[in-house]
Design a protein around this nucleic acid. Sequence first.
RNA 1: GGCCCCGUCGUCUAGUCUGGUCCAGGACACCAGGUUUUCAUCCUGGUAACACGGGUUCGAAUCCCGUCGGGGUCACCA
Length: 509
Amino acid sequence: MQLWYMSARPSPTPLLLFSKIHLAQWMPIMSPNPKSMSDGVVTRFAPSPTCFLHIGGARTALFNWLHAKANGGKMLLRIEDTDRKRSTSEAIDAILEGLTWLGLEWDGEPVYQHARAARHGEVVEQLLAKGLAYKCYATPEEMEKMRERAHGEGRSAVYDGMWRDRDPGDAPAGVDPVIRFKAPNEGDTVIEDQVQGTVTVANKNLDDLIIARSDGSPTYNLAVVVDDHDMGVTHAIRGADHLTNASRQAQIYAALEWETPVFAHVPLIHGSDGAKLSKRHGALGVEAYRAMGYLPAALRNYLVRMGWSHGDDEIFSTAQMIEWFDLAGIGRSPARFDFEKLASLNAHYIKNSDDGELVNLVRAIVPELSQEARPPNSDDEACWEKLALAMPGLKERAKTLIDILDAGRFVFVSRPLDMDEKAENLLDDEARAVLGGLLVSLEGVEDWSVEQIEYVVRGYAEKTDLKLGKAAQPLRAALTGRTTSPGIFDVLYALGKDEAVARIRDQVR
RNA sequence: GGCCCCGUCGUCUAGUCUGGUCCAGGACACCAGGUUUUCAUCCUGGUAACACGGGUUCGAAUCCCGUCGGGGUCACCA
């Protein structure tokens, strides 16, 4: 563990053009260090465990993973749980499971940020000792006034620095202070972001942020800097909502004389109304996409195309993504989430999946479905075997695994079948008469293969001068209880002779 | 409101850095036609965009300025 703390990158080359003498005027120039690329790329995904892994987080993780893989590097996982009150183990589990399901395996053990509080405290002490941080005793009321004043004067910096240079002897008794970072007042902080380009913020717009709470616990921006540094992170790829944090973090890096990682702030994913995707859009965790019957490969493909492109290419295997992924290919404008496109991609991946594998995937999500949504007899092995037989016809019309389950429901139901209204209407006397004739022909089939079945049914239609549809539709109704289904010969075949014949006989009487 | 970012078909985007090959290409969606035992799939075709206004230039989606619009962020949350 001690070693871990010391695991800064080998000989970090300070890129910061500032000296202690000119602290107040410093202007860190954070250009990416091309050398560090060849030293081995280390990315990290750093979710806060306050809720499930949502779609935006999943994409951030994907980009970090891809960038690591594309450069032969590693993606680390860090759970940002400094706020103990809001962190839950359920959320941690959901995040870990979500990443695993998506196929985004991280390297090494997850790092729990709260476990590193001692190290964070150590850095806070260092900053304090060097005069780069100070204790602040401002009351909530005073802060509220400052907020109002800043807003009224149209300034963006809120805290006015009232304790920045004040004599600690003025400290009120019995008040635990917070510790603030002594941020530079003049000059600019410049970030060379791989996605956003050069982002310049005037230092006067950034106030002295709190790096340790009054109970001594570290805050986010301090912890992130210390952890990214100690973990040897070379590339911080995260949502654009962290862009302002990046400026503040850059100041802390500069104060500590540490090299900043390369930043890449990816535009956010928006809901259909154009606002940041959130719970009010019904934003879902990845486990919800799994339950809706989406394939990990489809979700990955969809996610990688949101904000990133490789010419006109739409379909990417994981290997291709890794080969082609490049931070430079990420666009700067936010994207809206579109279920239709995800569904179309999902349909593509389903069509190209192996039948047996699809059966397993469908089976795996059944326990996650509500009681009504589950097919009857879902513990009957024979039904699953029939589903496998029907899969070729099922998968070409499905957009999700749920579609397969729904369209394939006829293999699960038991006789006598429930008929939907259209099927009921279709089975008039004429149709039942046709079924009667068909029944006799089908009972005579020895070799119950798709070819034989088709031969017999077509033969019957020709013999009785019926259009094929006149035979197929009554069969469909009798066999599935519906008016739509996969090809009728496939349905007959999947059901097996005994069951098919019995279902037809049920309707002849 | 301050600060930061963004603005090509309804949506995701190519093209923008290195102005002309773009009266703007692809994908999803949508519409029409074809294949077909239903529904789909599949095939063919179609509708549809450079936010607006100036400027630079022989020439601008591409460069510059402004306007408008959208988003993010301003916690002892992360």
